[in-house]
Write a protein that binds this DNA or RNA. Structure first.
Lengths: 150, 150
DNA sequence: CCTTGACCTCAACTTAACCTGAGGTTTTAT
DNA sequence: ATAAAACCTCAGGTTAAGTTGAGGTCAAGG
């Protein structure tokens, strides 16, 4: 009965299909955690795999690491998260996915008419001004703030 | 009948709701163009407004400037693009929007089950491996290439 | 004429999400 | 026992899409 050995960073990286540097990075950002062995090497609990999977899944949905971190922080600290814990996250993100899909559908439906239309000023262009609130959770680094939201 | 005066960069920026630096940037990237007046100041044709609108609309859909540039290069050089020219673009992007929406719907439909599921290895996770081809046009800077697409 | 305001260029900074490499230690396999 | 593989830290690089600022020129109004 050895004291729990945990996995090394290389193995985890391999199983997750990410680079070691990514795991270092996530740890630095507080998205995953590890303990160290005698020789200062990282050891991981096996649930890190699910964490990384979830991080990657959420990223695909366009959620930033920042927001993912926030969501993950809702998981219990003291015990290994169970299925129910994870499903809370899933439901949460499902919602924002629904919103995003609705947003894109709206965009799609106005795209053709809009690009062809006569609105030479973006001030009145319906596509340009399509509810920016929704776009905030949108396609990553969109830093523009067209209509003076303040 | 003065020789066509065109618009100054400040006016265009104002009408488009973007910063002057953005127009400089777009020009540098070859997305828009201008000529210079006597004093080396930029002058724009009025169709630059539509160009910028289209650039911004496309960005909202998650298309990169790189791809937008490619699409814009299909516009006629010699004459001012007409409605039909623009509609070709719109149709093109509508298609990729359809694809993206379908992708997100697929993600959404597997999200809950997937996060809660027992796949501890991302190698077999359906959400992680949901057709990466579609994700390529996806949420901006997603640089990961999980399943060795080459 | 002279002062603003608009414009010019060019270099450097910004954010997100990592990656790369150098230089050094630890673990593992032979 | 020793070489190779795996790991460590830390600094600096990368891409996208701009933004900011310095230092200088141009144009318009009084």
């Amino acid at each position: 009965m050895s004291v729990k050995a945990g996995w090394g960073v290389g193995k985890v990286a391999d199983r997750c299909g990410v680079k070691i540097s990514t795991l270092h990075f996530y740890e630095e950002k507080g998205l995953i955690s590890s303990w160290r062995n005698q020789g200062n090497q990282r050891r991981y609990q096996k649930d890190v795999l699910r964490r990384v999977s979830v991080i990657k899944a959420a990223q695909k949905v366009g959620i930033s690491l920042e927001d993912i971190k926030t969501a993950l922080s809702a998981l219990p600290e003291n015990r290994t998260p169970d299925t129910q814990d994870w499903e809370v996250l899933a439901r949460h993100w499902r919602k924002s996915l629904d919103i995003k899909i609705a947003y894109l559908e709206k965009l799609r439906d106005s795209l053709t008419g809009c690009i062809g239309c006569g609105c030479l000023s973006m001030k009145k262009c319906p596509i340009y001004n399509a509810d920016d609130k929704l776009a905030k959770e949108g396609p990553g680094p969109v830093l523009l703030e067209p209509m003076g939201s303040e």
